[in-house]
Amino acid sequence: MHIETIQITPEILSLIAEIDEFKGAWRALGQLAPETLTSLKRVATIESIGSSTRIEGSKLSDQAISLLLTNLDVQKFTTRDEAEVAGYSEVMTIIFQNYQDIPLTENYIQQLHRMLLQYSTKDNWHSGSYKKTSNHVEAFDQDGKSIGVIFETASPFETPIRMAQLIEWARQCFADKQLHPLLISAIVIVTFLALHPFQDGNGRLSRVLTTYLLLKEGYQYVPYSSLEAVIEQNKEAYYLALRQTQGTLQTETPDWQPWLLFFLSALRQQKQRLENKIAKEQLLMVQLPPLSLQIIALIQSRGSITNSDIVAITNANRNTVKKHLETLVAKQYIQKNGQGKATWYSVILK
């Protein structure tokens, strides 16, 4: 894997130290009210699903995804975008709930890929299996026409061999603890994407694997802040860093720096977003009147609520509740959905 070419620069050390400091601080921050943690996780999950699928071409907004996820039991999807969202949502749930019991093996990675594509009927022929035909990364013009291959991935013949080597290397490195787990995770992801082992879904699966690896290594705050949203906001830099490092992987001196710096910087932005959200939650406790705080807590615990529900639960005057709701919406603490009698309120998605 030529990890001897990794240069542990002061910038890399500083990024790792900052991320690990927050990892330790989360033990205290994680004692937030359960409804607050539930709300943070719900918003982050929606952002992650939306961003990760949009990076690959989906057109669904976070609001549309939020509505779709409230009706997942229907399991009838009219578009491929909806099917991809449903699959991503289920894989995220599996990772959050079972990451401790999921070993890092090829078999489990293939199972996660199968789950990711389970609702997309057009992908049934290849889900859960390594690619059978070449899938080099191409660039397309505004009309969707290919303008050429910009990166050659592993061939179908060598994919199983190189995937086995990658997983064995990662397992050994995590066990030996001679390389920081954030660096191991970064190398696994950039190499996985260079191999592009599956016919489709590699980008989405790489971001699922990132969450899995981080949770596995004790970064327990990850479900409460979306790394995918950070990547979407920095998509050009994301692809540039990937290409700069991937273009050197088959040489004797791979240049890991572009990708490592992007990966660690993205993790820093992820934890900063969470710090900001926590600060906002703590500020709410000081600034808002008791009924407003109660309304926010109800929305956080339930995901959504109507004016009538709030009146019934709090026994507050309907007009008083309405004024509190209007103020909370105006200050962007909550989000108003629908109109008239069909109006309901939810946590705000940013």
Score class of each variant (00 low, 15 high):
Ile8His: 14
Ala17Cys: 14
Glu18Phe: 09
Asp20Cys: 14
Lys23Val: 11
Gln31Arg: 13
Pro34Tyr: 03
Glu35Lys: 09
Lys41Gly: 06
Val43Asn: 03
Ser48Asp: 12
Ile49Lys: 01
Ile49Met: 04
Thr53Asp: 02
Glu56Asp: 12
Ser61Cys: 10
Ala64Gly: 07
Leu72Gly: 09
Thr78His: 01
Thr79Ser: 15
Glu84Trp: 13
Gly87Ala: 08
Val91Met: 05
Met92Tyr: 12
Met92Val: 15
Phe96His: 12
Asp101Lys: 15
Ile102Gly: 04
Asn107Tyr: 13
Asn107Pro: 01
Tyr108Gly: 02
Met115Asn: 05
Lys122Val: 05
Asp143Gln: 14
Asp143Glu: 13
Gly144Trp: 14
Ile147Tyr: 06
Ile150Pro: 01
Glu152Asn: 15
Ala154Gly: 08
Ala154His: 11
Ala154Trp: 05
Pro160Arg: 08
Met163Ile: 12
Leu166Ser: 02
Gln172Phe: 06
Cys173Glu: 13
Asp176Met: 06
Leu179Val: 15
Pro181Ala: 08
Ile184Gly: 01
Ser185Arg: 01
Ser185Tyr: 07
Phe192Asn: 01
Leu193Ile: 04
Arg204His: 05
Leu213Pro: 01
Leu215Phe: 00
Glu217Pro: 00
Glu217Gly: 00
Gly218Met: 10
Val222Lys: 00
Ser225Asp: 09
Ser226Leu: 09
Ala229Asp: 10
Ala237Ser: 14
Leu240His: 10
Arg243Lys: 15
Trp256His: 04
Leu260Tyr: 06
Leu261Asn: 10
Gln269Lys: 15
Lys277Ile: 03
Leu283Phe: 06
Leu284Phe: 06
Val286Asn: 09
Gln294His: 08
Ala297Arg: 14
Leu298Ser: 04
Leu298Cys: 05
Gln300Met: 06
Arg302Asp: 11
Arg302Leu: 15
Ser304Leu: 11
Ser304Trp: 03
Asn307Tyr: 02
Ser308Asp: 13
Ile310Tyr: 13
Lys323Trp: 01
Glu326Ala: 13
Ile334His: 06
Ile334Phe: 11
Thr343Asn: 04
Trp344Lys: 07
Ser346Val: 02
Ile348Asp: 02
